[in-house]
Design a protein around this nucleic acid. Sequence first.
DNA 1: CCTTGACCCTGGAGTGGCTACAGAGTTCTA
DNA 2: TAGAACTCTGTAGCCACTCCAGGGTCAAGG
Lengths: 159, 159
Amino acid sequence: MRIGELSAATGVDVETIRYYEREKLFAAPVRQANGYRAYGTIHLERLSFIRHCRALEIPLADIRRLLEFATQPTAPCGDIDHLIEEQLLKVRARLKSMRALERQLAELRKRCDAHHSIGECGILHELVAAAHGEACACHSADVFVTKGRRVIVGSGPTR
Amino acid sequence: MRIGELSAATGVDVETIRYYEREKLFAAPVRQANGYRAYGTIHLERLSFIRHCRALEIPLADIRRLLEFATQPTAPCGDIDHLIEEQLLKVRARLKSMRALERQLAELRKRCDAHHSIGECGILHELVAAAHGEACACHSADVFVTKGRRVIVGSGPTR
DNA sequence: CCTTGACCCTGGAGTGGCTACAGAGTTCTA
DNA sequence: TAGAACTCTGTAGCCACTCCAGGGTCAAGG
């Protein structure tokens, strides 16, 4: 199987496959006389495994670890458990902040329900209000969490 | 105000402030005799505005556009409306895929409820099953969307 | 006066997970 | 036999920072 066929079979871009090889997510395949990569069923399975994990947004470094674990079937599986648990926690935390984000944006959008000039635009007005340290429709609380980092918003010189 | 004070006042990292300057999100401030940046209230407000937008996960390119809009108060505000609407749609799409992700990971975690060896681990088993084109607990459908791109999972050589 | 430590400067590299491209060679199809 | 379609390598770009090296500046304490 050539790289294009593997790509078609898995839906993974050719460039991405080569990238995974560079990143040592799977061993370099044998080469044909012309230098083309020749893949077998093993590669197809491993690539599907990787994409399945990526679909769960598991980072490549963790996928590498999972692949290593798979070679030691007698070891205890606590690490795998832990890895999935961590991933779930990450997703839940992100979900929480995304929900807040959705509320804030929906609230902000409400500020502009008619066609008028930028000078009168409620949206821009709200965004600018925040820059003056005033309370704003979108951020009632002063501090909230984005991407796991504490970010201060809606405040200003008064802090 | 020196950069450290601006940083303390807004909660924005010093490096990030310099980065915003490089990215032309605000004009370079005047310099003191020693070369230190000297900021005023305008910078503080603009930086707060930027962070407020970033807290809404509005990309820097869009923030640049918003800042340009703000200089034209008589123009119609349709573009601003549209920008926020697009952002809301983006967030909602992402939210939807995150919710699916959460379900899938929670389902996957259930597969391993006891301490045993990697060879017997239900989680790894499920992940490997996907690579064989079998149905898996985490992905009942064959195809779903991640980050706006179509990704094929849970299938394999049979496609 | 000297040291220490906190601050500031520039320029460049690194992060993750791809994606895109240049410039070359190879193979398939009409 | 021409041209399209594929493959190769190597490198750079994307986003929004973050970190570092190697230097300069400044105030407080001994």
